[in-house]
């Protein structure tokens, strides 16, 4: 099964890098969608069946935490697993994002191996 992945980050360079890391990870990736913030992500999620969301935290208009709270309150989207990719890996921040509903938290710098491990764990638990 190929998984449809949504990458949410306000940096085009970082979205491109995450795509590259997904390729290198060997994870079975199908279509990859991109959004610049939480609002764009919600629009894509409304129109497309997405298997997993990879999101940054700090973004304009709607940040990653707000995106997760929207998903948690949406009966059609609340089961879509969200992984947070962030430079901020402080205990305080990780705790807040997991409490908001993140299934996993990957601190940057991001490696293909760590991303694969986390995707296997989260998607294995979801299937």
């Amino acid at each position: 099964m190929s998984y449809r992945v949504l990458v949410v980050d306000d940096s085009a360079a970082m979205r491109g890098f995450v795509r590259r890391v997904l390729d290198l990870s060997g994870f079975d990736v199908g279509d990859v969608f991109e959004a610049r913030d939480g609002l764009e992500a919600l629009a894509i999620l409304d129109e497309n069946p997405i298997d997993v969301v990879l999101t940054d935290i700090n973004m304009p208009r709607m940040n990653g935490e707000e995106l997760m709270l929207h998903l948690r309150d949406d009966i059609d989207l609340q089961d879509v697993p969200v992984l947070v990719l962030s430079a901020d890996s402080s205990e305080a921040r990780v705790g807040r994002m997991l409490a908001a509903g993140a299934r996993g938290y990957l601190p940057k710098p991001l490696s293909p191996e760590r991303l694969r491990e986390e995707l296997d764990r989260v998607m294995g638990a979801s299937s």
Partner: peptide, 14 residues
């Protein structure tokens, strides 16, 4: 910055 500060200030956050 995130990597450095996570090592310096992990408990209280930033």
């Amino acid at each position: 910055c995130g990597n450095v500060m996570s090592k310096i200030a992990s408990e209280w956050g930033f």
